[in-house]
Amino acid sequence: SEEWVEIALRLLELGREANINGTILNLHKEEIEELIRRLLKRI
């Protein structure tokens, strides 16, 4: 399964939302940290 691709796409999506909203992603901080942890486990 290409889970890391899904994770990377989700991170990009959150990054785009952050640019549009001008936020520092506090809302998504925990989700982002969890996604990155899952991503690093696969490398």
Rank of each mutant, 00 (worst) to 15 (best):
S1C: 14
S1L: 05
S1F: 12
S1Q: 14
S1T: 10
S1A: 09
E2T: 09
E2R: 09
E2M: 11
E2H: 14
E2D: 05
E3Q: 10
E3L: 13
E3S: 15
E3M: 11
E3K: 10
E3I: 11
W4S: 01
W4F: 07
W4N: 00
W4H: 00
W4Y: 06
W4E: 01
V5P: 01
V5N: 03
V5M: 13
V5Y: 11
V5A: 04
E6S: 05
E6Q: 10
E6A: 07
I7D: 03
I7C: 15
I7P: 00
I7T: 01
A8I: 14
A8S: 07
A8D: 00
A8P: 01
A8T: 06
A8E: 05
A8R: 02
A8N: 01
L9N: 02
L9I: 06
L9R: 09
L9M: 04
L9D: 02
R10N: 02
R10V: 15
R10H: 06
R10F: 12
R10Q: 04
R10G: 07
L12R: 01
L12W: 11
L12E: 01
L12Q: 04
L12Y: 04
E13Y: 04
E13R: 06
E13G: 09
E13V: 07
E13P: 02
E13W: 12
E13K: 03
L14A: 02
L14K: 01
L14G: 03
L14M: 02
L14I: 13
L14C: 11
L14E: 01
L14V: 03
L14R: 01
L14S: 01
L14N: 02
G15C: 15
G15M: 15
G15Y: 15
G15N: 03
G15I: 15
G15A: 14
G15V: 14
R16C: 14
R16N: 03
R16F: 13
R16D: 04
R16T: 06
R16H: 08
R16G: 02
R16M: 06
E17S: 04
E17G: 09
E17H: 10
E17D: 08
A18H: 06
A18V: 12
A18G: 06
A18M: 10
A18N: 06
A18E: 02
N19C: 14
N19S: 14
N19Y: 14
N19P: 02
N19D: 06
N19L: 15
N19M: 13
N19K: 07
N19H: 14
N19A: 13
I20F: 09
I20M: 06
I20A: 09
I20R: 13
I20V: 13
I20G: 07
I20T: 12
I20N: 11
N21E: 06
N21D: 09
N21W: 15
N21M: 14
N21G: 11
N21Q: 04
N21I: 09
G22D: 10
G22E: 14
G22N: 06
G22P: 15
G22V: 10
G22A: 11
T23N: 11
T23K: 07
T23H: 12
T23L: 12
T23D: 11
I24R: 06
I24P: 14
I24G: 09
I24T: 09
L25Q: 11
L25N: 05
L25R: 03
L25E: 01
L25G: 08
L25F: 06
N26L: 14
N26R: 04
N26D: 13
N26M: 10
N26P: 11
N26Y: 13
N26G: 07
N26I: 15
L27R: 10
L27P: 05
L27S: 12
L27M: 11
H28N: 09
H28E: 07
H28C: 15
H28Y: 10
H28T: 08
H28A: 09
K29G: 05
K29H: 13
K29W: 15
K29P: 08
K29C: 08
K29M: 15
K29I: 14
K29L: 15
K29Y: 14
E30I: 12
E30F: 06
E30A: 07
E30H: 08
E30N: 05
E30T: 07
E30R: 11
E30L: 08
E30W: 10
E31Y: 07
E31D: 07
E31W: 11
E31Q: 08
E31L: 10
E31F: 13
I32F: 08
I32D: 00
I32K: 00
I32Q: 00
I32V: 08
I32A: 02
I32H: 00
E33H: 10
E33V: 13
E33C: 15
E33A: 06
E33K: 06
E34S: 08
E34H: 09
E34T: 12
E34F: 09
E34G: 08
E34L: 09
E34M: 12
E34W: 11
L35W: 08
L35E: 01
L35C: 15
L35A: 03
L35N: 02
I36T: 02
I36E: 00
I36M: 05
I36P: 00
I36V: 04
I36H: 00
I36W: 07
I36Y: 05
I36L: 08
I36G: 05
R37D: 06
R37W: 13
R37Y: 10
R37G: 03
R37N: 04
R38M: 06
R38W: 13
R38E: 10
R38K: 05
R38V: 08
R38I: 06
R38H: 05
R38L: 08
L39R: 00
L39K: 00
L39A: 03
L39Y: 05
L39P: 00
L39M: 05
L39V: 14
L40K: 00
L40H: 06
L40V: 08
K41G: 05
K41W: 12
K41L: 05
K41T: 04
R42H: 14
R42G: 11
R42Q: 13
R42N: 11
R42Y: 15
R42A: 15
R42F: 15
I43D: 02
I43C: 15
I43K: 02
I43T: 03
I43S: 01
I43Q: 02
I43W: 14
